[in-house]
Nucleic acid binder design. Structure first.
Lengths: 138, 138
DNA sequence: ACGTAATTTATAATGATTCTAAATTAGTGT
DNA sequence: ACACTAATTTAGAATCATTATAAATTACGT
């Protein structure tokens, strides 16, 4: 076996001690095929329903922020209500389904090249993010 | 004179009773050449320093939300920290200066046409927003 | 097994925003 | 001008997401 040891090593390699809590969260986030979009609240609910070990809210925040700081999660702001996180850290964009209130990845090839024809003196571009809002078609 | 009467009529035409507070806020937002980007906190500070009449925080929120609901303000989410509003309600995009933490308009012509090459069945696109983050060039 | 630093935890604190219910004000009719 | 009613404003409480605190627990090298 064991994914657990692989995850533990992964965490260690990030400079994060592989605690039980971190392994549970790490595997929930990354032991899956598709990318995963979630809010802290989503994560808390999933953990409540799937993990026998209780993980405190503070630990959830701490772990997610550590992973984000290490570059393993991307933070996405759609609106002021909630903060979303994305396990897909490659350069890409998003659909936001306003009916279901959920994110869908738009990979880089799904969006034509974006030309910015204006520059601000003394400033350089650090990122370009496109958010495409969608709603039920009726 | 008076802009005040013009603003009062404007508010009335939106179905908003032209109270003293609303006129003060309306003129602060719209009686200017350039578009104005602000947070509620910004607005509160400006009002504290420029208006003799004290306007409560609840009224600031109420008025901004009314104007937004009527389509006279646009809400912009850059990050989870704060909600920004924009007096420019035309279709356009933004730079966000991460050093100064401020928004700069990018008008529609400043951004090349954006092609979305993916569709979601049963959904239609309601908006496309581009956020270009910039930082000091050094 | 032991010691210590890192981590987790419950809980308190914070900050933005919304809610509430009472006081004030705008607009109408007299 | 005066009174009435509904809309609006207000201070303060409530809420919600997030962060901070300080004590208890855990990971791990010795």
């Amino acid at each position: 076996m064991s994914n657990i040891h692989i995850f533990a090593e992964k965490l260690r390699s990030l400079g994060l001690r592989p605690t039980q809590q971190r392994i549970i969260i790490y595997s929930l986030l990354f032991d899956r095929k598709d990318t995963f979009h979630f809010t802290i609240d989503d994560l808390q609910n999933i953990l409540k329903n799937t993990s026998t070990k209780k993980i405190s809210l503070a630990t959830i925040y701490n772990t997610i922020h550590s992973l984000k700081d290490k570059g393993y999660l991307k933070e996405i702001s759609i609106n002021s209500e909630k903060t979303y996180f994305d396990t897909n850290i490659s350069k890409h964009h998003h659909f936001f389904d306003e009916s279901k209130r959920e994110l869908i990845d738009l990979n880089d090839k799904d969006v034509g090249k974006i030309k910015i024809k204006k520059a601000v003196p003394g400033k350089k571009i650090t990122s370009i993010e496109v958010l495409v809002k969608i709603a039920n078609n009726n």
